[in-house]
């Protein structure tokens, strides 16, 4: 099919990894030999040791190449965040309402039905809650902007990177 670009390189890895795990099971079967030796392990090892090292060498090279040349579409990834109508920000709206003095139960009872409605009617979640007076009375437009700001979730990324990369 001309419109498709299939991840066959990655799927090739999936199959080969199955083979290597199978070889691992054979290696475990080889651990128990009789007394000071029997030769049951020998035939198996003639296959599994060369094959596993050859497979892993091949996989690491092929997959390193795939990752190195990965085409990433940041704009599509960002757009993907919005494709669930902003319901992923419902938790922050809920917490902000609690911060402004609403009870958890009351906040949940307003936020949750609107989140469901957003799903079911394919309507932006923000548009729905802006029609809820109980919410707009407590949260200003700026506060709502803050609730729907994805960068809030990324504020500790630097710190995580400092521990690793």
């Amino acid at each position: 099919m001309p419109h498709k670009r299939n991840p066959i390189g990655s799927e090739n890895m999936t199959g080969m990894a199955r083979v290597v795990r199978g070889y691992m099971m054979t290696a475990y079967e080889n651990v128990s030999l009789w007394h000071e030796r029997d030769i049951s392990h020998s035939s198996a090892e003639r296959i599994i040791l060369p094959d596993a090292t050859i497979a892993v060498n091949y996989m690491l090279n092929r997959f390193s190449n795939i990752v190195k040349n990965l085409t990433v579409f940041p704009e599509n990834m960002k757009r993907n965040i919005d494709c669930t109508y902003g319901v992923i920000f419902s938790q922050r709206v809920l917490l902000s309402l609690i911060d402004q003095g609403m009870s958890r139960e009351q906040a949940y009872d307003i936020v949750q039905p609107n989140a469901m409605k957003a799903w079911e009617t394919a309507t932006p979640f923000r548009q729905l809650i802006e029609q809820e007076e109980q919410i707009t009375n407590l949260l200003s437009n700026e506060q709502l902007d803050d609730c729907f700001d994805y960068t809030y979730h990324l504020k500790n990324v630097d710190q995580i990177f400092k521990k690793s990369v």
Partner: peptide, 24 residues
């Protein structure tokens, strides 16, 4: 014994399998 003990080879193969699994 007459051989090296095969826990050595099993550990080695486990490690290769874990590497391969993560690529998968």
């Amino acid at each position: 014994t007459q051989t090296l003990q095969r826990d050595r080879h099993a550990q080695y193969m486990s490690t290769l399998a874990l590497v391969a699994t993560r690529l998968k």
